[in-house]
Amino acid sequence: MSSADTTVEPDAVEAAEVPVVDERREALLASLVEALGDAVVGSHIRPLDDLWVRVDREAWPTAAATLKDMGFTFFDYLSAIDWLPSPYGRDMDAQEDLVVSGAEPKVPGPVEQGYAGGDTRFQVIGRLYSIPDALGVHLKTDLPDDDLRVGSWTPHFRGANWHERECFEMFGVEFTGHPNLVKLYLPADFQGHPLRKDFPLLSRRVRPWPGIVDVEPMPGRDDNEEGDGE
């Protein structure tokens, strides 16, 4: 969906009179629903761009195997999303930020998921790609808060090995059937799961950094070179 040469404000002014239909992705979604049945619990298509499919937790490995049989043999990535809004806000508490954004309420909003819906705080997301068709699929699945476990993709895609290890140490998600689920990046005595939203960045707790103070002037409008570029 290309906004041909528009120079308007980025709040999207919907210029689509005729809704664009992405036939290839619709067909792919239909064949997935046919193969997996009830396991597909949500989906979203951005026409001519991408497809998101949310499946049941039990069907997570089966969905990967199905897609692999359909020609999606390239393993792109696998990770997780923590939908809890950070209890520390944006961690930019300096005066300059408040000037720009108004006094931001410290109360974080509710847990809201993104495309293809969702019910839980943690979602695992993976992407597979089909090289002959030049099509990619994003797969998501919900994880209940008290049971962060899901089946591993390693029997089908060997590249998932390291991605699942990283997801395990960053979020605490366990992948059943993974041959060697240990820490990948962090030293062995590291405590906590860093990418969870309730894991604080201690340096920012100690000294908040003025986040917006280095706004540089738009090119061509200001003559004097002020503002750092960092």
Binding site: T7, E9, P10, D76, V100, G114, R127, M218, P219, G220
Partner: peptide, 21 residues
């Protein structure tokens, strides 16, 4: 032509998800 489209000074990106490779 110009090298910059008209975007606001403080950039707030609308809600959504996108993947570019």
């Amino acid at each position: 032509g110009p090298v910059m489209a008209k975007v606001p000074r403080i950039i707030k990106v609308p809600a959504g998800e996108a993947y570019v490779e």
